[in-house]
Computed example of a mutant assay.
Amino acid sequence: MKWLATICLAVWPGVGAALELALPEGARLDAERNVSGGYDLPVAPFDGQKVPSMRLSGQVRFEVWRVESGFAGTSGLADALRDLLEKAAFRVELDCETDGCGGFDYRFNTEILPPPEMFVDLSDFRVISAVRVGPAGREGVNILISSAVRAGLVHIVHVVEDTNADPVTLVVPETSGAAAVFSPAIATGDSDALARALEAHGHVVLQGLTFETGSARLDAGEVPVLVALAAYLSDHPDARVTLVGHTDSEGGLDKNMTLSKRRAEAVRDYMVQELGVGAGQLDADGVSYLAPVTTNATPEGREQNRRVEAILLTAD
């Protein structure tokens, strides 16, 4: 296997030896963001109330890499990256996977770039946190590796304590002078279009779902987009999909987290009970208002943010 070894994470003044991490050749940088202020580096799995962390004040870099042809699974890549960290004199504080990390609770109690920049398969991810001490202070790295459709995603957070460094501003991709707006694929009752979008993008917004205000009860009647999704799952018996509920930003986080998950569960129950989809092909979760697709400052924006998405986890 050929490897790419040019991911240099130590880029700020006062840092000693640069840290390079190796990913399989062809790995693609999908997202990057630099911020100042600090980061809560996870040091233990979710303990029932929170993810125990070590506060590192300083400059923080987030990166998301997509690994396609060379991705052989989360464990193999994680083992290789842990070995590189230890050779670079980092002390590993946390190494866990999936339920051992806390699953859903770990994912939504740590700082991770939101979709579409990063998707986390809640049934297949591994986390490594490590720290070393350099001339400028402590340096921390958090790596989350998750499987995606025919690929792996590697989310890297690198924080350096350096009070003398200049502030780092947000990195915005060059798009005619403005930040790009994410427009997710929208699935309707067209079965062929849904299949193409789901396999090309890995997730789609399910259009045409109607819930009563503040309720998780799905309005009665046939829902064409769910019929199309059921047909896809019937044609692909090895495929597995997670239904993810999203809300707008009105109301508290906990209340919306519960509501978003209940709405996803209502869609799952409808597909199993009314459309005959195998329960093993469908999971359901909610993310509250943590992954908006547009502004919540307008009624139109809030309406777009209230949605249920289907995320394709595995396909034959």
Rank of each mutant, 00 (worst) to 15 (best):
L4N: 11
A5L: 04
A5F: 01
V11L: 10
V11N: 12
P13I: 07
A17G: 13
A18D: 15
L23R: 10
L23G: 07
L23H: 11
L23T: 14
L23P: 06
A27C: 15
A27L: 05
L29D: 02
L29W: 07
A31N: 02
E32H: 12
E32V: 14
R33P: 01
G37L: 04
D40I: 05
P45G: 00
D47W: 00
Q49Y: 00
Q49P: 00
V51D: 00
S57N: 09
S57E: 12
G58M: 08
Q59V: 03
F62Y: 13
V64P: 03
V64H: 10
A72V: 07
A80F: 12
K87C: 03
E93D: 11
E97K: 09
C101P: 03
G103K: 00
R107F: 11
I112A: 08
E117Q: 13
L122N: 06
L122H: 07
R126T: 09
I128L: 04
I128K: 04
S129C: 09
R132N: 06
P135A: 07
R138F: 11
R138I: 04
R138E: 04
G140Y: 02
N142S: 14
N142I: 03
L144Y: 05
I145M: 11
A151Q: 00
V157H: 02
E161R: 11
E161H: 08
E161D: 09
T169Q: 06
T169F: 14
V171W: 06
V171A: 15
P173K: 09
P173V: 15
E174K: 12
A178Q: 14
A179G: 08
A179N: 06
A180C: 07
F182D: 04
A185M: 06
A187L: 04
A193Y: 04
A195L: 00
A197K: 09
L198K: 06
E199L: 14
Q207Y: 13
G208E: 09
G208N: 07
G208R: 03
T213G: 08
G214E: 04
A216H: 12
A220C: 01
A220Y: 01
L226Y: 01
A228M: 05
A230P: 09
A231L: 11
S234K: 08
D235W: 10
V241F: 08
V241D: 05
T242W: 04
L243H: 09
L243R: 05
V244M: 10
S249Y: 07
E250R: 09
G251S: 02
G251C: 12
G252E: 10
D254C: 04
K261V: 15
A264T: 08
V272R: 02
Q273C: 06
L275D: 05
A279Q: 15
L282I: 12
D283Y: 11
V287T: 08
N296T: 13
A297K: 14
E300D: 09
E303C: 09
R307H: 05
L312A: 13
L313E: 05
T314K: 14
